[in-house]
Every structure is written in structure tokens, then in C-alpha cells.
Nucleic acid binder design. Structure first.
Lengths: 337, 337
DNA sequence: TGCGGCTGTGCTCATATGAGCAAGCCATGC
DNA sequence: GCATGGCTTGCTCATATGAGCACAGCCGCA
């Protein structure tokens, strides 16, 4: 591979690529134009593809990043992964991730008989993104308590109900607070046959669908009045990176505050870990730490996320990947004969 | 074309495109995955291409814009056109246009027996970009006078000589000033047998290669001391947009100042117009007006330029086209082979 | 209800393309 | 001087792909 030779070859490859991809000429025609055999044209084109001279991009809001999906699955032993290209805008990002989760749910096989869902902003968007009639006879059960104490009453319930309704199924709600103030109250409520029945049912769900929240003041738990900003601060001090189904975890996948956790009503982490299908939907910068904790400690089997999060999880520097891709423009030597 | 249908179809097309272009799957395999026939996959893919979901780009400094080249040729009745993609940088742009001109010259058929050249910064770069031995036995003749009065002596001569040497041919120079101060002097020099012989020879050249300059203070004529900034101002007042082979023209392709023109030594515009092969090499914002004048009035038969200039000539809005064509900074790795 | 036009589908067949292989080609080392 | 090994080149053949066609369902219109 002498440099002078490769310069001439490269120029030829560029010409061939132009004729093939922009002018839709056949390799045979290109051969005639460039005065080489059609086999050489074929080789030139594959070289051009290898060297990245030809860039093929799929520009569409619903596009996915299959290469990253494969990497994620392999690296973290996931059953499946969905990665959407990251748009500039955070709002748009959340919308696309939610849409992707809805798409995934629709085409997921086997169709779950009973689907366990958490609640929150993300899950609500997923519910809205699901088309009416996305499935038939899928029942839904809530995984964790979610009676809102302050704003937006009924958000948790409406998410579960919407998902069930759109699939022509029934929703079973867990009509309790997410976190109780006193351990005794929590135990009492848990002792109630209805409540324990719901949790039991949740344990038997054939799939879980849930999101995660960051350990900061934007958390839904602050919004809903279960936790104060002081509580969050204390959690962060204890190493909390975020929450799943109401439970705050640290970077090594353990409960950040066992006392608080004991007062949290709903499914435990172990059920997520051992579930056949546990679909985590999570996107955006602020959730990178919690996503990392979940994914590295087997707390989900399917991950739906955005490109940036995916790269962060894989440890790929994603600022650089945006900036590079410039070719060196060094080019000398004999042009086409 | 019901909207709901086209939405579903589009999503399918996106999936197909991903599998085909990013995963290198065969249409048959994709059919199996998406549960449609392979013919449908083929149709999906062509739809995706039509709708612009798939964007194929050739990223290489030596790439060309064949579509623009075709448009230019058709619109202005050119024999040929070469358009290079415009880089961000003006210096880089000049380099690429010059390189492209050199490439064109090398592969141009029939090989000119005698090549008439002008001089200037652009032509000098073209000369440098030509590979040694780019042709055999091509003689070169200078089209217009170019003894520099102040800086860079010998530039004009060295351009012609370099082009000839690299092709193993002889250069015939026109060792006179470009513009004389007095008409009498010009006539006297023109009357010299040697000088008139060179011009006669230039008339018989089988191809011309020349550039154009803008009508502003950056002009080589100011640099070389033939014209003062006042002269340029007066030319602009008379409607001059720039010069070719030393002659300043207006937007409608006529001589801007006949008196000045009479004192200008060298080939006339008519010879360019009637030449079989008149290769104009011109790039950059400042030369758009002069390029437009030349191209619309038949003063070149081959145009080598950059993308922005091409769009300006065609009347396409290029600020917009320049602004887009940025890729979203999403970048996946090389697709698997 | 029945009928022409129209779109979308699955096919046949010709063509374009890529994999794999034998032969040549250059440069090196003995 | 000559063999050798890595490389490119031009081929054969199997496969992937696109063009064109007949048919089916669907719509509006009488």
C-alpha cells in the first residue's frame, strides 16, 4: 500500500462513488467511464465504504441506532435494547424515547398477559404514545404506590388505566401512597388483603415496564410531595443516584437508605432482577447515573434509551464522536490517468 | 395515500433502511424480519430513498457535485463543468478549485497540442497542483502580458513555465507589461515581431486556461502595480465586475473602459468566446459577479468552480443550502461488514 | 348493485453484484 | 539470476436486486 498508489486509488474511488450513489450508474457503466473493469469498480466502492468516504445516514425521527443497541445488549447481557438518535432538544428526546418504548411494547413477543407498570412523567408519555388497540386483552397492574399528595392527582392511576384501555384490558391499581411516613402505617396498609393481593399479582406479571428518576429536586417524588428537597439531599449524601419503582439506589445497585426503603410500598428490586422481561425506559443527561446503576446490576433486561445515554453507559466519549468525522484533507499525487 | 397508512409504511421503510444500510442485511432477510415479502422491502427502500429518509453523502476533499455540474452545463451551454464542494475556509476553497482544475486538465481529451494560459494567484495554484509528467509534449503560451512591476517578479512567467515543464513541453512567454501607461507604447510593443508572434501563437492554441479577478483592491493588478486603487474605483463606477486575461468587463460582458482596454496587451475577449476549449477556473464569493458575467456571455466553454459559486450562478439560494447540509452530530461507527 | 379506474401485491425474468479463485506482477532475499 | 511471497487483477458462478406484468381489492359513480 504505497502512499502514491493509494492516493490515485482513492481519487478513483471517490469518482466511482459519485457515479454510483449520486448518478445511479451501474458498476459496468462506471467501469467504462473510468476505464477500469467492473470488478475493480466494485472493489473501489467497497474500499470507499470501508474508508468512510461514503456516509449513509438515515434521517428520521423514528430511526434507531442498531449498532449501539447491539453493543449495549452484549456488554450488559440485555435481552434487547432500543436506542433512538438524540435530538438537540431535551423535550424532543423524552418524546422520542417514549415513542420508541411504545413501539417496542407493540411489537414485543410474546405478548404479555399481564403487564406491570410504574408511573411518572416518562411512563405517562409512553402510555400516550401507545396507539389505541395496540394489543388485545393485555391486563395491567401497578408496581408501586402512587397516589399523588399534591399536584396532578391521579397521574399514576391514569397511566396504568390508559395503557390497559388502549389494549382492551383491565387495570389493577395500587391505590396507596408511594412512601409512608411511618413504618407501622406501611405495614398496616401492606397487611390489607386488597393491597397485598395487588402486589402479589404484580409479582406474577409476565413483563414489567418502568422508568427511573434522578436523585435531584426535579424528581417526581418531590413534585408529588412524598419527599422534601432535604430528603433528597440526605439521599444524595448516602450515595443515591436515582430511583426505580419508588426505591432509591446507589451506584452499586443497592438500596441507598434502608429505613426509607422499608417505608416504600410496592414491588422490590429483586423481582425486577429476576423478571423475564423488565423493560426500562430512560433518557436524558440527568438520568445517566441511575441508568448506569440499573444496567450494570441486572435491574433490567430490556433498555429503551437515547443515543447519548447509550454512549455514556458504554463509556464512549460522545462529545468527541460528534466533533470528529472530519477527514484529513491531505491529498497529493497522480490523479486519474 | 391515506395518512395513517403512509405513517405505518414510513416507519416500516425506516426499519428496512436501517437493516439494509446499517446492518447490511439482504432484502430477503429484512422481509423475514419485518414480515413482508422481499419485493415489498425493495419498494420500501426505494420509497425511503425518494422521500429523502436515506441520505448518502460522499465526504472527501476531492468529491464533486455532479448534479450542479450538469445544471451549469445545461443552463449556460457549457461543454463541461467541474464543481467542488465548498469547504468552510476561503484558502481551502481556492486550493480545492485549483486542484480540480489540475485534475480536469490532466484527464481532458483531446490533449491540447498548445495550451494558452493566463496568470494570477489561481493559475499559479493550478500549476502547482499539476503532477510532474501530467502530459507529454504540451506546449504553453502566455495569453496576456504579465511582467510584475512591484512584488513577486516573474510570477506570470513561472506559472506558464511550470505548466509546460511538468508536461515536458516548451513555454512561450509574453514578456511585456499587462497594461501600458500610454497607448502609443502599447502599439509599439505590439508592433514588435516577437510580441505579435506570441499573440499570433496564442490565437492558435487548442485550449485556453485562465482565471478571473474581482474588481476590487485585492486584484492582482493592484498588487502588481498596473492599477491604483483609484483606477479600480473608476472601473467600478463604470460598472466593472472583474477581469479576465487582463481585461475588465461589466455585468453584460462588455469592456468596462475601452480606453484602458486599448492599453491592455494580449489576447482579446473574442478569441475566448470563439475558442473550442476555454477553461475558466474561478472560485470564491468575491468573484461571483465576474463569473456570472463570463458564463452568461459565452466567455468560457468549461467552468471549474466551487459549490457556492455554482449555486449563485444558477440563482439557487445558497445561504440556505450552505446552512443545512450540516449533519446532526449523531455518528455511529462503521457498519459491520 | 354493478362497473371502470386505481392502487398495491406477488410473481417471472433479466440484470447487477459480490464471493471466491487462478493467474500474473512486482519486489525482495538468497 | 532466480525463486518466493504478498498483492492485485480478471475471471466464473451463485445470488441479490429491479423492471415489468397480471391480478385482486377498493373506491367513486351511475
Amino acid at each position: 500500500m504505497a502512499p502514491s498508489d493509494s492516493a490515485a486509488t482513492e481519487l478513483l474511488a471517490v469518482r466511482a462513488a459519485e457515479l454510483y450513489y449520486e448518478e445511479n450508474k451501474t458498476q459496468d457503466e462506471i467501469g467504462a467511464i473510468l476505464r477500469v473493469t467492473r470488478w475493480k469498480v466494485g472493489r473501489l466502492l467497497s474500499q470507499a465504504r470501508e474508508r468512510g468516504i461514503i456516509r449513509i445516514e438515515i434521517v428520521h425521527p423514528r430511526a434507531r441506532r442498531l449498532a449501539l443497541e447491539r453493543e449495549l445488549s452484549a456488554r450488559f447481557g440485555l435481552k434487547d435494547a432500543v436506542v433512538v438518535p438524540a435530538p438537540v432538544d431535551e423535550v424532543e428526546l423524552q418524546a422520542r424515547v417514549s415513542e420508541a418504548a411504545a413501539d417496542y411494547l407493540v411489537s414485543h413477543r410474546p405478548i404479555p398477559r399481564l403487564l406491570g407498570v410504574s408511573w411518572g412523567r416518562t411512563l405517562h408519555q409512553v402510555a400516550e404514545a401507545l396507539p389505541v388497540g395496540w394489543s388485545t386483552g393485555v391486563n395491567v397492574v401497578q408496581l408501586n404506590g402512587g397516589v399523588s399528595l399534591s399536584k396532578r392527582p391521579g397521574t399514576a392511576a391514569s397511566t396504568a388505566v390508559m395503557i390497559a384501555q388502549k389494549a382492551g384490558g383491565q387495570a389493577t391499581l395500587l391505590p396507596t401512597p408511594a412512601i409512608l411516613e411511618r413504618l407501622e402505617t406501611k405495614k398496616a396498609i401492606e397487611g390489607d388483603r386488597t393491597v397485598s393481593g395487588v402486589i402479589q399479582m404484580a409479582r406474577g406479571a409476565s413483563a414489567y415496564l418502568y422508568s427511573a428518576g434522578p436523585a435531584d429536586v426535579t424528581s417526581v417524588h418531590v413534585d408529588s410531595g412524598y419527599l422534601t428537597t432535604d430528603d433528597i439531599e440526605r439521599l444524595v449524601e448516602r450515595g443515591a443516584v436515582g430511583d426505580v419503582i419508588g426505591r432509591y439506589i446507589t451506584a452499586d445497585g443497592t438500596i441507598a437508605d434502608p429505613e426509607l426503603d422499608a417505608r416504600t410500598l410496592g414491588l422490590g428490586l429483586e423481582e425486577l432482577r429476576s423478571a423475564a422481561t423488565a423493560i426500562l425506559v430512560v433518557g436524558g443527561e440527568s438520568k445517566h447515573p441511575v441508568a448506569h446503576a440499573l444496567v450494570t446490576h441486572g435491574l433490567c433486561s430490556v433498555l429503551v434509551t437515547d443515543e447519548h445515554t447509550a454512549r455514556a453507559l458504554l463509556g464512549t466519549d460522545n462529545s468527541r464522536l460528534g466533533a470528529d468525522s472530519r477527514l484529513s484533507d491531505t491529498n497529493e499525487g497522480d490523479p486519474v490517468s
